[in-house]
């Protein structure tokens, strides 16, 4: 009996089938290539977005450029309101003009999405808006979340 078992195990090879492996790996690869956002910016300011009812979707994501305004998460001046564009914090509001103008030259249909923390004050937002007007980037979007309790306001 035992000799019979031995004989069988010796005969059939116990290899893992590897023929389908490349296909699976390729599929995973393609999936991640498609879904991965290439440049994930690290947001250094806190942006808890306000809620709104009359919101619209931005269909073309490639037109959008973000401006983050909110209290700093870390660092020496923690809690102080700061402006961030892409990966950099903006020290002087006047620099927004130059940055946005460059972006507008690259993408004439630029939409600037203002991701502003709901506790921020309007002064900073107004300053940024004035800079955007100077730069000529007039299409803006106040990023906000869908208000679930629509009738509460």
């Amino acid at each position: 009996m035992s000799s019979h078992f031995k004989k069988k195990s010796a005969k059939s090879k116990q290899d893992i089938p590897t023929a389908s492996l490349p296909d699976i790996i390729f599929m995973l690869l393609i999936f991640f290539m498609v879904t991965t956002v290439l440049r994930e910016t690290e947001v250094q300011v806190r942006t808890t977005l306000p809620r709104a009812e009359a919101i619209q979707k931005i269909e073309q994501k490639r037109l959008v450029s973000y401006v983050y305004i909110g209290p700093l998460k870390t660092g020496q001046n923690r809690g102080a309101t700061a402006i961030q564009i892409d990966d950099a914090l903006i020290d002087d509001v006047n620099n927004v003009r130059t940055i946005m103008y460059r972006k507008l030259v690259e993408q004439p249909k630029l939409i600037v999405s203002l991701r502003v923390d709901q506790t921020s004050e309007m002064g900073m937002v107004m300053d940024v808006q004035q800079e955007l007007r100077e730069a000529g980037t007039l299409r803006i979007n106040y990023s906000s979340r869908q208000d679930r309790s629509a009738a509460s306001s």
Partner: peptide, 8 residues
């Protein structure tokens, strides 16, 4: 992305 669109 969702938000309120405005034109300055």
């Amino acid at each position: 992305d969702t938000g309120i669109n405005m034109t300055l």
